[in-house]
Structure formats: C-alpha cells, structure tokens
Simulated scan of single mutants.
Amino acid sequence: MEDEFYNLAVKGNDLKTYVIRFQELAILCPNVVPNFKKLLEVFIWRLPKSIEGNVTALKPQTLEEAITIT
C-alpha cells in the first residue's frame, strides 16, 4: 500500500477517484507522511499542474480545504 501511496496520481481528469484513494491511503498508511503539513504538500504536489497552481495560491490550511478547492 505504501508503494501505491507514493505512486498515486490523477489519471486524466478524474480528481474524485484521486481524492478518495488519497484519503483512504492516508488513513491506511499513517507513517508514510510524517506530519499534516507534509501530507497536504503531497496531496497538492500530485495534482495536475493547472490545478496545483490554483490550490497553492489559495493556501489551504487543511486537507479538506485543498479538496474543496480542487
């Protein structure tokens, strides 16, 4: 599962599947990302570049905020 978490990415425009699987893997592999700030960075970093810039510019404070922005 950790390998899947490390390699998880958005396929096409299917953000919903990415978000759901990211949340599942974050719960199932809590030790993969050392803290919440890093978890948020990983989530944003794996978004398509066009979306990543918008999310980063709005500076979400929680994963839920980042998900809502996407």
Rank of each mutant, 00 (worst) to 15 (best):
D3G: 12
T56H: 01
I44R: 00
C29N: 14
N54P: 02
P48Q: 07
T68Y: 15
D3T: 15
G53F: 02
I20G: 04
V19P: 06
V32P: 03
E4K: 13
E41L: 12
V19C: 10
I44P: 01
I20N: 11
Q61A: 07
E24H: 09
E4N: 10
Y18R: 02
L40D: 06
L25P: 03
N35E: 13
V19D: 04
N35G: 00
G53Y: 05
P34W: 02
F22Y: 05
I27M: 13
L39E: 09
Y6P: 09
Y6H: 14
T62K: 06
L28K: 15
Y18T: 10
R21V: 04
P60I: 00
C29F: 14
G53R: 08
L40A: 07
W45F: 14
P34N: 10
E64W: 00
R21A: 11
E24S: 10
A9H: 12
E65S: 04
Y18H: 02
Y18P: 01
F43N: 05
Y6S: 14
L8S: 04
F36R: 12
L40V: 02
N7S: 08
V55D: 01
M1G: 14
K16Q: 14
W45A: 13
K49P: 06
R46W: 04
A66N: 01
A26C: 08
Y6V: 11
F43Q: 02
A9T: 15
F22Q: 00
G53P: 04
N31G: 15
E24L: 08
L63I: 08
T17K: 15
N54C: 09
E65W: 10
M1S: 15
E52C: 07
F5C: 09
I51F: 06
E52V: 07
R21P: 12
K16V: 15
Y6G: 05
T62W: 07
F5W: 08
L15C: 06
L58W: 05
K59V: 04
F5N: 08
V33D: 04
L8D: 00
V10A: 07
I67W: 04
Y18N: 01
I51Q: 07
T17R: 15
A9L: 11
D3Q: 15
N7L: 08
L47E: 02
E2D: 09
L39Q: 12
I27F: 12
E4P: 07
E4H: 10
A57H: 07
S50F: 11
I20W: 03
P48E: 02
E52H: 09
L8E: 00
K59N: 09
P34M: 04
I44N: 01
V42G: 04
V55M: 11
I51G: 03
N54S: 13
C29L: 14
A9D: 11
E64D: 09
L15E: 02
L58C: 09
D14K: 15
K38M: 14
A9G: 11
D14H: 15
A66M: 06
V19N: 02
N35M: 01
V42C: 06
I67R: 03
V32H: 05
E2T: 13
L15M: 12
E24D: 13
E52I: 08
L25T: 00
L58H: 09
I27T: 11
R21N: 10
